[in-house]
């Protein structure tokens, strides 16, 4: 890969005095991820102490650097060099596969029925459809440890709620459009809730803090209510948690 013209990809766009946006792709595709994580790793070693933050997302990598150590021009030169001869990171073997134990039930997944109605599938098929696929993490954002994953089976495509809920309980597993996610903390949210996972998605005391990282692979594994509770899952029904 090498920058060619102002419109060709990849390209660098100014993101302020201390940032460059590296635009690598223009569509959402799981095949983007090995390229983005490869560039991320190269930036980590090339920038060293001048690196402040790296924010990967679906098609881009935001590089934030220390403007005392580097001028925007110098940072641009470094990134341009890194893009030259960039090769994708070694496929699926280097990214982690996580299995999130998930209790799919109307008491903790109040939108199962709505999704079934919208998609024309039965509730059992919605659950099967959601839990049979392995997803990739495209981006983290919205809240600490909130991972945007995809793509879901096209049959599951479902719009967000018209009115977001004021509070979605911790661990809620949800879908919207062709993406899926699990809520690491109780936050407002407008996605369709299918169930709840007992996995601890975000832990400020844990090394690395977030269970899921960009590029990781994720499967939702259906578990019984008993197994969910044994793992510390919260079965408080949605209505009571409101």
């Amino acid at each position: 890969m090498s920058p060619r013209s102002a419109t060709a990809l990849p390209r660098l766009e100014s993101a302020g005095l201390d940032g460059w946006m590296v635009r690598l792709f223009d569509t959402i595709d799981e095949a983007n991820l090995p390229w983005i994580t490869a560039l991320l790793q190269r930036c980590e070693s090339a920038f060293g102490t001048a690196l402040v933050d790296l924010v990967p997302s679906y098609t881009t990598l935001l590089v934030v650097f220390d403007p005392v150590q580097l001028s925007p021009f110098e940072a641009q030169q470094t990134i341009t060099t890194l893009l030259t001869g960039l090769t994708p990171e070694g496929g699926t073997s280097t990214s982690q596969i996580h299995e999130l134990p998930t209790y799919y039930h109307a008491s903790v997944g109040p939108d199962l029925e709505r999704v079934a109605e919208h998609t024309g599938l039965s509730v059992a098929d919605v659950i099967a459809c959601h839990s049979q696929k392995t997803y990739r993490v495209f981006a983290l954002g919205f809240a600490p440890g909130f991972a945007f994953m995809g793509l879901t089976d096209p049959r599951l495509e479902c719009p967000r709620l018209d009115t977001p809920r004021k509070k979605v309980p911790v661990g809620s597993v949800a879908i919207a459009a062709r993406q899926t996610a699990a809520y690491p903390t109780a936050t407002p949210g407008g996605w369709n809730l299918l169930g709840r996972t007992s996995a601890r998605l975000f832990d400020r005391e844990r090394e690395g803090f977030s269970l899921l990282n960009v590029g990781d692979q994720v499967r939702f594994a259906p578990v019984s209510r008993d197994a969910f509770e044994r793992d510390g899952g919260d079965t408080t029904p949605m209505e009571a948690a409101q």
């Binding site: 993101a15 302020g16 946006m21 959402i28 997302s57 679906y58 098609t59 881009t60 935001l62």
Partner: peptide, 10 residues
């Protein structure tokens, strides 16, 4: 846009 990182002052 497809969501992407946003820097201070954007």
């Amino acid at each position: 846009l497809i969501s992407e990182g946003i820097n201070l002052g954007g």
